[in-house]
């Protein structure tokens, strides 16, 4: 099993790198490329969300707002503090990471239900503040963020951001992969399975949850900040929306929260679907209905995501699969037992 998943991970990585490198050359026009960037943005945010959601099982509906905060912080640091674009981006992400500490303190001391409530509250508070504090944030008129590369043409600008986003996605995936295979990651998964039990086995669950929440907020803010630099115009209603936060959850869940590439797969599926809904339903509110129904279906029938569902299908199509797994384990064990035979008893 472990071998199979290792192959799947390497294969997925090769595929993803190829897609990231080739897409700008095959995209027929700048519109498609910019739509691709939107999907890539979702992939980064959803992967960042999955640091919390995937490892600990705590579901945050507020990550859309953390991204929005990253975007606004980046924009404001450029506009008001005169920082250079990418320095501002980094500083904003650190700032959001710091904001995550008191939020996490309130949200993570107790169990899941309070966490969800706080994550929703964060969105509503930030929306309130950024809409009302117009003198600083631009309020409902929005905030215009100067572009980092003023000399580039529009297609070149898209292309540059495609690669920036690709780098960020790679970084987030690498970090997730490292956590996944670490003792820290194992502790987080133990929290997901049974928090009391994890604590009783010596895992400092609160500290672990806190750390991973801050890491998640940091990457989320980087994604949001990059969006601000790319798009150049921020509106509180879109930056601080529960709906955008729920898209991230839907993506991760659909792709599979326990898989490295699950959120990326989900982002592609849902991102394309959202674009399709927008085109076919236009201004009506039916895109909300479609999102709601899709989310409901995933929760009811595919809570582990499509990737695991596919894996289960593959497994069923290869009936001898389970036998080989057991043989392998047994073989390993025999070696181990022989090695142990000397020093035990």
């Amino acid at each position: 099993m472990r071998n199979v998943s290792r192959w799947a991970t390497s294969g997925g990585a090769v595929l993803l790198v190829a897609a990231l490198l080739l897409f700008p050359s095959v995209a027929p026009n700048p519109y498609v490329l910019s739509a691709g960037i939107v999907v890539l943005n979702y992939a980064v945010l959803s992967t960042s969300w999955n640091f919390v959601g995937g490892f600990t099982g705590y579901i945050s509906l507020g990550h859309g707002a953390l991204a929005g905060l990253g975007g606004y912080a980046t924009g404001l640091l450029v506009v008001k503090a005169g920082l250079s674009s990418f320095l501002a981006l980094f500083a904003a992400a650190v700032l959001v990471g710091l904001v995550a500490v008191p939020v996490g303190f309130a949200a993570l001391r107790v169990r899941g239900a309070s966490f969800v409530i706080v994550s929703i509250a964060i969105v509503l508070i930030l929306l309130l503040v950024f809409q009302s504090w117009a003198s600083f944030t631009g309020g409902s008129r929005g905030l215009v963020v100067p572009r980092p590369f003023p000399d580039l043409s529009r297609p070149e600008h898209h292309r540059a951001f495609w690669y920036l986003y690709s780098g960020l996605l790679a970084l987030a995936l690498l970090a997730w992969w490292l956590v996944d295979r670490s003792r820290f990651g194992l502790g987080l998964k133990a929290v997901r399975e049974d928090e009391d039990k994890a604590e009783a086995l010596g895992t400092p669950t609160f500290a672990y949850k806190m750390i991973v929440f801050v890491v998640s907020a940091f990457f989320t803010a980087l994604g949001g900040g990059l969006y601000a630099l790319w798009f150049g115009d921020l509106d509180p209603v879109f930056q601080f929306s529960i709906l955008s936060g729920s898209y991230l959850v839907l993506m991760a869940l659909l792709g599979g929260v326990r898989n490295l590439f699950g959120p990326v797969v989900g982002a592609v599926v849902v991102g394309v679907a959202l674009e399709y809904f927008k085109v076919s339903f236009g201004d009506t509110q039916l895109h909300l209905v479609a999102t709601g129904v899709l989310l409901g279906l995933v929760v009811m029938f595919m809570p582990d995501g499509v990737l695991p569902a596919l894996a289960a299908l593959v497994k069923r199509l290869r009936p001898d699969d389970s036998a080989t797994i057991r043989e392998e384990t047994a073989e390993e064990l025999r070696d181990r037992r022989l090695a142990n035979a000397g020093d035990k008893r």
Partner: peptide, 16 residues
């Protein structure tokens, strides 16, 4: 956790 998402989905559907 899943009930939050399910009821959220219902809320969005009703709103839509």
């Amino acid at each position: 956790m899943m009930s939050v998402l399910l009821t959220f989905a219902i809320a969005v559907t009703i709103e839509g």
